[in-house]
Simulated assay, not measured.
Amino acid sequence: MESFSYLGIVLLTLISPLPTEVIMPLTGFMAAQGKLNLVYAVLAGVLGSVIGALPWYFAGKYLGEPGLRKLSHRSGGWIKVSMEDIEKSKYWFKQYGGRAVVLSRAVPGVRTFISVPVGISGMPVLLFLFYVVLGATIWDALLAGSGYVLGDRYYLVKQYLGPASNVVVAILLIAVVVLLFRRKTRRANKSKSSLSAKKLESKL
C-alpha cells in the first residue's frame, strides 16, 4: 500500500488472500497518519470489489455451475471454486435477490460467490454493479472508518467487526424462518377456505 498507494488497495482487494476486514482497517489507519485520503481509500476498495465480482458474474452467466466445475478441474487447482459457498450463495440470492448482494459484502466467502447465481439468473450487469457498489461502499466505509478512529489499534477492527457477519447470517436465517412460516400459514388458510367453500357448495 505504501508503494502503490490507492492502486495497492485495489490490487490487495483483488489478489490478496487477506479479507477486506484486514485490508480496509489498515487503509483507515494510514489515512489517520496522513498517508492516504480516507474517501479515496474507500473508493479504491470498492473498485477492487467491483473488478473482483465481475469475472464470477460472467462465469455464472456464460458457464454456469457445470462449467465452473470443469474449469476448476482443468486448471489443476489454480482456479479453486468452492461449490459449498456457491450453494450457500444460491440460497441467499434465491431468498433475497439484490438485497443478498448488498448484505453479502459483510460475509467472507459468500461475498465472492454470490456473483455466480446472480449471473446465472440473468440479472442485468448494471443492476448487479449497483448492488455491489452499494454493499461494498457501506462495508468498506465502516471498516476503514473504524481503522481511522482506532489508529494504531486498527487490527482490533477485525476482532470486533468480524462477528458482524455472523449477525447478518443470523438475521437472514430468522427472516427465512419467518418467511417460510408465513407461506405455510397462507397455504393452510387457503386450504381451509377452499374446504369451507366446497362444504358450502355441497350443502347448497
Rank of each mutant, 00 (worst) to 15 (best):
Y62H: 14
A144E: 02
Y131D: 00
L127T: 07
G97K: 09
T137W: 07
P66K: 09
P117Y: 09
W92S: 10
F113A: 10
S121I: 09
L134G: 02
A59D: 11
G122C: 08
V110C: 11
S165A: 13
G135F: 02
V132C: 02
L156R: 05
R69V: 05
F93M: 07
I51H: 10
I120M: 13
W78G: 02
E65A: 12
Y160D: 06
V110L: 15
G52S: 08
Y160W: 04
A100V: 11
M83F: 12
G151I: 02
L47P: 07
Y57K: 11
I86N: 11
S115A: 13
F130I: 00
D140W: 03
S75K: 03
I120A: 05
V169P: 01
D152R: 02
L71Y: 02
G97W: 06
G122L: 10
L126I: 07
V81I: 14
G151V: 02
R105T: 15
G67W: 14
G98H: 07
A141C: 02
K90Q: 14
T112P: 11
Y57L: 15
G119F: 02
P55G: 15
V125Q: 05
V50Y: 10
A144S: 04
S104M: 07
V107H: 11
T137R: 02
Y62G: 05
A164P: 05
L129V: 06
G145N: 00
P124K: 15
V149G: 06
S49D: 10
S49G: 09
I79Y: 07
I51R: 12
P124V: 08
H73G: 05
V102Q: 08
V101S: 05
V167A: 06
V116K: 11
A100R: 13
